[in-house]
Design a protein around this nucleic acid. Structure first.
Lengths: 236, 236
DNA sequence: CGCCGCTTGTGAGCACGTGAACAAGCGGCG
DNA sequence: CGCCGCTTGTTCACGTGCTCACAAGCGGCG
């Protein structure tokens, strides 16, 4: 690269599809580091992460030229650069809203804190849940979200409420200054463009699997009853 | 309209991106049906599902010409056709492998059975967990997977084990005849091409959010005040 | 019975993501 | 000190997915 001043610039635009793969690469690098490897080739990294080598190289090139031709990528250094790019050099405090089955499990799940996303607060609207303690954290009322966000520098909100409450909770989170939301509720949540929103719907995942299973010719052994594919005219 | 060989629904190849949206449309249709609407336009359906009208129309066109110009789509009929295409006219029995925090929550989560995916069996490798009962279902040992799958016509396996056990469990599931797998373990799982695999990694989702939060100019020393809206986040 | 407004279904153009192929460049070896 | 094997970074071609725009077609109305 001839222009030297561009190095510090974060102006590179990284494609969304690549961003979604970076955490996988990072996880694979951790694995490689655990095995004590000093460097790793794109091909090996592709194996570990489940993609192909060309894609790996192209993705990594968006971060910068951190590899050495003929050798590979320095595991520790690439790990550091990728963590920095992903914003993982600091902890992001998380609030979980809604403590039904799923929210409860998420609150108990240690995997978040381990990976740099400590659960700093829990909120719910149900007075029977407010005041209880989960994994050492007291559940507070959702009305206190503003105070809670200020106290704990909350960056990310996780919505694990029923669908009917999701939009309201999202609005409250945003009002409290939260600008990244992970939505587990099975409903559409609208947010202003400056807020990042990702959604995870477990039932949707199963339905997608169901589609492909259906297509695989699942009429082999009729488990319960043979589905008659009726062909009616629309709105007869 | 000269119909000819129009009944060839299996021959249509539906793009993967469209398949991933079908469950969302279906959910939106349920909502519309709940409101008592007899028909729905692509524009209204787009609002409910969070996409745009053109995409909705093109997606629905892959299922067939089920709309009426000048009127819209018959809600009930489209709902039926879409359910059939997604294979939701029958129940798909699910086994959950691994009953730590997440698996436990999934087993207690009623949302699966409600949407046509009853949890038929639970397995774990830990002898302290085997024999306990969750939500009325006894936990059996993972070694019994073959018998269990035969007994219950298991179609879908959910992996909620630690990462280290995921591949082994996947292999056992496949050996038992399961051909659709939903993997929650934070690791790569390899499956033969005739098996469908989808993965959900909660920490990865948070890391993706972290990336965009980082990019938004997160010199978050001034966290009490709302941050300046910088452009370029992905919403949706 | 013909016209008109409304909505679908689809074809074309465009943006994005993917995969293959290859020149550039680094380290090691004789 | 020059050659050679190895791996990156990049370029190019392709396929997929998305958006736009509009003709086709349906129902209602005068």
């Amino acid at each position: 690269m001839a222009d030297g001043t561009k190095r510090q610039r974060q102006a590179r635009k990284i494609p969304e599809a690549t961003v979604a793969r970076l955490p996988i690469y990072l996880r694979s690098l951790l694995e490689a580091a655990g095995d004590g490897l000093p460097t790793i080739s794109s091909e090996r990294l592709a194996e570990l992460s489940g993609f192909n080598a060309a894609k790996v190289r192209k993705d990594l090139s968006y971060l910068g030229s951190y590899g050495t031709r003929g050798v590979g990528y320095d595991v520790e250094y690439l790990q550091f650069q990728m963590s920095r790019e992903l914003g993982l050099t600091k902890d992001w405090h998380v609030v979980i809203a809604g403590l039904g089955n799923l929210g409860h499990a998420l609150a108990n799940y240690g995997g978040f804190g381990d990976r740099g996303f400590p659960v700093a607060a829990l909120v719910d609207a149900d007075p029977r849940v407010v005041g209880t303690e989960i994994n050492g954290i007291a559940v507070r009322h959702v009305d206190e979200l503003g105070d809670i966000a200020a106290e704990h520098h909350i960056a990310i909100g996780i919505i694990a409420t029923p669908a009917s409450a999701a939009q309201d909770v999202a609005d409250r989170l945003i009002a409290a200054g939260v600008s990244s939301i992970l939505n587990f509720a099975p409903t559409i949540v609208s947010v202003p463009p400056e807020v990042s929103l990702r959604k995870v719907d477990l039932a949707v995942e199963l339905q997608i699997l169901s589609f492909y299973q259906q297509r695989r010719g699942a009429d082999a052994r009729t488990a319960s009853l043979p589905p008659e594919p009726a062909a009616m005219p629309p709105a007869g």
